[in-house]
Write a protein that binds this DNA or RNA. Structure first.
Length: 431
RNA sequence: UCCUCGAUAGCUCAGCGGUAGAGCAUCCGGCUGUUAACCGGAGGGUCGCAGGUUCGAAUCCUGCUCGGGGAGCCA
């Protein structure tokens, strides 16, 4: 038998016979010639069977193949200008591995509802495969960047005794006789880990039981959360722009074919280099007021505000130093202006909204204690968090980046649901 | 939770008061270079559910169910 290889590597076998293993993506045929579009996860290649060359038996075997049946095909690799990937396979032999009758997803248009009901099959299509590939490369780039910068990966728990921020709705479950909740952020645990390991990060799912139904929301989504001891707000922001730029550059170099399959305008990504523009909250409010928005200092931005602010720039933009009142309890006040905190949100271009939220954290014991009282946080579940300010506290900072929003932006997707293999959305838990 | 749009063949949709339609998919036949191939033929329907108006409802009205988009909230 000829050597087994994959479609992405057939270029190394021109003129030789190879064996490919995959699935039939599509088939076109006339009376005496058949064109089999075979995919194997690494790409798609057209396999050509000419009746007078392969013989009646092999030709009939090709004829019996149906959409998405699995198969092993042996053939000679040929360079061909007419082929999309540049190569074709002249079929010598074909073996069907698994049948597939009445495959639901045809190559014609489908509605979102139908596709989501068949997500387990939808991911086989070239576009969805490409998106999942980009997602994997985004995660690899993030991990590579942080690992190469002295970070240690630490995995916070998914089951928690209560909320990290106390604001959003939590998924409730039982932990034997106790109440438990699915994590909405690992941040507090990462702060603890940063005091143990210096620079740490997590990659994992977060859960928000919000009845959100927009193209930017998932009920279950993934966050990457770096947390750094001895980092200031300024250090934090500089890390973020280097981090995001690295991720985009990595995807541009490793996912050229995938971005082409998705139809992404590469030029928009090639501009993503540090430094990113920065706007203070004050400046952002003033800009919005000048552009006809009824918004006052102290209000939080809505999605349309964010979109308009971000639309001014061709790179992601930081909005920093928000009013203390509208941000989380643990954020460090600006020493020169205690009414604002040392935080920054990073808004992606092209209307993708907030992809990063980050801040310098309060390290002073008395101030954190005061915040606990102001927000009536229960000591029995948060006592350990206060301990971090009691034993060797240091200034520290961190951020959380939403993976699906980042992938959606890099791929230019209409909706974050395509940026995760099996999206959990409002009213959708299947498949 | 609110606003808004929608539900007709396996899929995407048209039909908007007078016998249920098209393209694709499926099956049969044809075609030696197809690119969501093409050509001919066939099968395929509780028009989301329940009421109401009408001689007559897929079509108009009311309620319900399910879903899409958006808002709020957030990544």
């Amino acid at each position: 038998m000829s050597p087994i290889t994959t479609i992405d590597k057939v270029g190394d076998y021109v003129g030789q016979a190879v064996t490919l293993r995959g699935w039939l993506y599509n088939k076109r045929s006339s009376g005496k010639i058949q064109f089999l579009q075979v995919r194997d996860g690494t790409g798609v290649i057209q396999c050509v069977a000419v009746k007078s060359e392969v013989g009646d038996e092999v030709f009939a075997a090709c004829d019996a193949l149906t959409q998405e049946c699995s198969l092993i095909v042996e053939g000679v690799v040929r360079r061909d200008e007419r082929a999309k990937g540049g190569y074709e396979l002249s079929v010598l032999r074909v073996e069907r591995v698994g049948t597939s009758t009445d495959y639901p997803i045809t190559l014609k248009e489908h509605g979102v509802d139908f596709l989501l009901d068949h997500r387990h099959l939808w991911i086989r299509t070239p576009r969805q495969r490409a998106i999942l590939k980009v997602r994997a490369e985004v995660m690899r780039a993030m991990a590579d960047f942080l690992d190469g910068d002295g970070f240690t990966r630490v995995d916070p728990p998914v089951l928690t005794p209560s909320s990290c921020e106390g604001t959003t709705e939590l998924f409730h479950t039982q932990y034997f006789d106790e109440d438990a909740y699915l994590t909405q952020s690992g941040q507090m645990y990462l702060e603890a880990a940063a005091m143990a390991l210096g620079k740490v990060y997590s990659m994992g799912p977060a859960f928000r039981a919000e009845r959100s139904k927009t193209r930017r929301h998932l009920i279950e989504f993934w966050m990457i959360e770096p947390e750094m001891a001895f980092y200031t707000h300024e250090d934090n922001v500089r890390l973020q722009e280097a981090f995001v730029s690295h991720v985009v550059r990595h995807v541009l170099t490793t996912c050229e074919n995938e971005l082409a399959t998705i139809g992404r305008d590469i030029a928009k990504l090639e501009r993503i280099e540090p430094p990113f523009p920065r706007l203070s909250y004050d400046e952002a409010i003033a800009w919005l007021q000048r552009h006809g928005h009824d918004i006052r200092w102290g209000d939080d931005f809505g999605a349309p505000h964010e979109t308009e602010l971000a639309a001014q720039f061709d790179r992601p933009v930081f909005i920093e130093r928000y009013p203390t009142q509208i941000k989380a309890f643990y954020m460090q006040p600006d020493p020169e202006r205690p009414e604002v905190v040392l935080c920054a949100d990073l808004l992606a271009p092209e209307g993708y909204g907030e992809i990063i939220g980050g801040s310098q954290r309060i390290h002073d014991y008395d101030l954190m204690r005061q915040r606990f009282e102001e927000h009536r946080l229960p000591m029995d579940t948060y006592g350990w968090y206060l301990d971090l300010r009691k034993y060797g506290s240091v200034p520290h900072a961190g951020f959380g980046i939403g993976l699906e929003r980042t992938v959606a932006w890099i791929c230019g997707l209409e909706h974050v649901r395509e940026a995760i293999p099996f999206p959990r959305m409002l009213y959708r838990l299947y498949p």
